[in-house]
Design a protein around this nucleic acid. Structure first.
Lengths: 233, 233
DNA sequence: ATTACTAGTCGCCGAGTAG
DNA sequence: TCTACTCGGCGACTAGTAA
């Protein structure tokens, strides 16, 4: 879903809904209320909601008494993509974002996921390096979560999910990163379904990062995200 | 100019131009290049630029060899308005923004401007208080300039400019503020033509702020901007 | 009250092409 | 090459109205 495929109406409506907290929870709206806010007809408001629903940008339960609306993760991510593009428009000189986080040990899921043949092959071909069989978990500093969300609004490398042994493995989004003064190939990975505002970022690399960086749990790690030329899609 | 009056294409084009640094300077573009980027026809690209020019959102010199484009202050402010709305959409719990700045003495222009009968009357009627005949100049902390720009993206109270004695007095934009723990009526004022990224904010109030706050040049002042319910226009 | 279908109008888009 | 006009078609809007 590309933000530029949305009409201005739909985008405005999405912003309106989000401002009314439709990101976290279902909110009540009526098509008449939307129509008045945007100075359009009630019918158009109805059609816009319908279209957003069809494109799975919102969840919508309509009834003769009114409607309940909530943004889907897709809707949320569209707003973040717009934010990313806008930030770059307003700060064209900004070419990288630094994040600080603290290393911690997870339950080993990262290692498990990377080991899945399907993921491993895609990581290798799309990232251009063979990932070490393990991840370095970072708990991003509270002050930097907003910046993490900004990075997540960029156009990530998408590792496709799959179904295996009756279990669903979802899409994983990869963001190429650098560790200042190190040459290791690094990428931050985040499951697509992770909500914005999360402070967890897992790092994969072609090397054993804990050794290269000489860190243990609790140590601070800085990663840097550098902008590409344009939105790639 | 309301951001919701722009078509999605025009908004996208504006972002594209800004990302290519058309905020600061004239940049070269061709309608074909824009057409390819957005996957539209060259004709539509041409029409979009033409419309943006008519609405004084961009300056555009076109010739058979290509075009030079630059955003007008209006164009810049549209992007900042969008940023403001988007920030509120993504952070609906954020209800106020604090700015830190350092007091300094200007050349007394603020005092001069407020004294102009035309400005004074409008300040009084639109802000709801009689401004003290002087302003408190703040040099906003570098780290907070981005937040100042965010506030400037909101819907300000507009004090209309006028022509007098052969001189042009431009529009002044007012942002209602509060000083933490003080009850004084305060507003930040910024001439409309001031470019974004500026670190100067002038405060007007119904009281003599330097006395109430007990400050001299060089002292730090904190001001707080609180969001209203909705975009007012 | 709501949502949403249908009919009719209007404006926007792309193709062809002129300057 | 550029920009930008005209024209034909289609998509989006409003009004009326059904459910």
């Amino acid at each position: 879903m590309d933000i530029y495929n949305l009409s201005s109406r739909e985008l405005g409506l999405l912003i309106y809904l989000a401002q009314n907290r439709a990101i976290d929870k279902e909110i009540e709206v009526t098509t008449t209320q939307i129509a008045e806010f945007f100075s359009i007809s009630q019918q158009t408001a109805s059609r816009c909601l319908l279209k957003l629903k069809e494109e799975r940008i919102i969840l919508w339960k309509s009834s003769p008494k009114g409607s309940l609306v909530q943004l889907t993760p897709t809707g949320d991510s569209i707003l973040h993509q717009l934010r990313f593009e806008l930030e770059r428009a307003l700060h064209p000189d900004l070419t990288s974002i630094k994040l600080r986080g603290v290393a911690f040990s997870g339950l080993g899921e990262g290692k498990y996921y990377i080991s899945r043949a399907s993921y491993f092959k895609e990581f290798t071909s799309k990232l251009g390096f063979k990932p070490y069989h393990g991840t370095l978990n970072l708990r991003i500093n509270t002050n930097d979560i907003d910046r993490l969300d900004l990075i997540r609004g960029s156009w990530p490398i998408i590792i496709k999910g799959f179904e295996e042994e009756g279990r669903r493995f979802g899409d994983v989004l990869c963001y190429p990163l650098k560790i200042p003064k190190k040459t290791a190939n690094v990428a931050g990975i985040i499951p697509r379904r992770t909500h914005y505002g999360s402070n967890i970022l897992e790092l994969i690399s072609d090397v054993y990062l804990r050794e290269i960086l000489d860190i243990v749990d609790g140590d601070e790690v800085v990663v840097e995200f550098t902008f590409e030329k344009k939105k790639g899609n």
